[in-house]
Computed example of a mutant assay.
Amino acid sequence: MTILRSDHLQFPDVSCTNKEGLLAIGGDLSVRRLLLAYRSGIFPWTDEPLTWWSPDPRAIFELATFRPHRRLADKIKKKEFILTIDKDFEGVIRNCARRAPGRETTWISPQFIQAYTELYKAGYAHSVEAWQNDELVAGVYGIAINGFFAGESMFYRVTDASKVALVFLFDYLRSRNFELFDTQVLSPLTARLGAIEVRRSEYLRRLERALASRTSFYPEPGPPAAPAIET
């Protein structure tokens, strides 16, 4: 098992993971290290100790072919929520960190919140919010680098609101010509929504292509807190 030093910005090759996908321990959650990790097919998961992962297989959503199932599509057509982008990133990540029924523990520690907020300020982390009666009722956040998006977590207070927000994000990413949506490890929820598993070698090929894309999350470079987009 590789132990990373905080003053040495480097990861071992992803082929060095154990069978669960654990690659290394240690290092830090600096913006530079996080960006290097995502560009290398690696992501952090816990901070006591800080662990870095690159599982095989890897879970993704196929942006080009994704279609919501009928019940969710009907929910979207009802337009019960106002959907925005980057209007309340901190509110989304803090809600994702809260314990909820069926989620008694969370990996989103105060250190993770601080680190990903720094990524947001640097223009790499983004959120989608779902609002109802001026209340934040759901959201999803993740990391965008060129044509690559890594979905990190989502929460909801109203049934299906987070799923509606996720589909809105998919549609937005398609409009920006994104090529890869990484959801890291397949869960029962993401499987029901249509996520699939691919071999890590295939994932890395897709990641390389997405990172080479000349697209970006916003049409023009701008401040991290870009104007909200409503629907």
Rank of each mutant, 00 (worst) to 15 (best):
R32Q: 15
W53Y: 05
T190S: 13
G27Y: 08
S213P: 06
V128Y: 10
L36N: 12
S6L: 01
G27H: 13
Y172C: 10
T117L: 14
D86A: 11
R99V: 02
I229Q: 05
V92R: 14
L23W: 09
P12L: 03
P110F: 07
E80Y: 06
F181Y: 15
P224M: 07
P188I: 06
K77D: 05
R98E: 14
T159Q: 11
P57M: 05
K78W: 02
T2M: 09
E104Q: 10
L119P: 11
H126T: 06
Y38T: 02
D160M: 14
L72F: 11
I113Q: 13
E220D: 13
E80S: 13
L189P: 01
A228M: 03
E202G: 00
R71D: 08
T190E: 10
E135R: 11
E197D: 02
Y116W: 12
Y172I: 09
A100I: 05
K163I: 05
Y120S: 01
L207C: 09
T106C: 09
F168P: 00
S162W: 15
A161Y: 13
A59L: 04
L119I: 08
R39N: 07
V167I: 13
F11S: 05
M1T: 05
I42L: 15
V185D: 00
E220I: 14
R58G: 07
W45Q: 07
S30K: 09
A130H: 10
G222F: 07
L169Y: 07
V92F: 14
P224K: 04
I108R: 01
S216Q: 13
R5W: 13
T51F: 00
A228L: 05
F81Y: 14
L23H: 11
W131G: 01
R103Y: 00
G139Y: 13
K87H: 14
A122E: 08
Y172K: 02
A130M: 08
A226W: 04
A195H: 07
E104Y: 07
R98L: 13
L166M: 13
F148D: 12
V14A: 12
T190K: 02
I108K: 08
F168V: 02
P110G: 08
I143H: 10
T183P: 01
G27L: 11
R192M: 00
F112Y: 12
V158W: 06
F61Q: 07
V31G: 03
M154W: 15
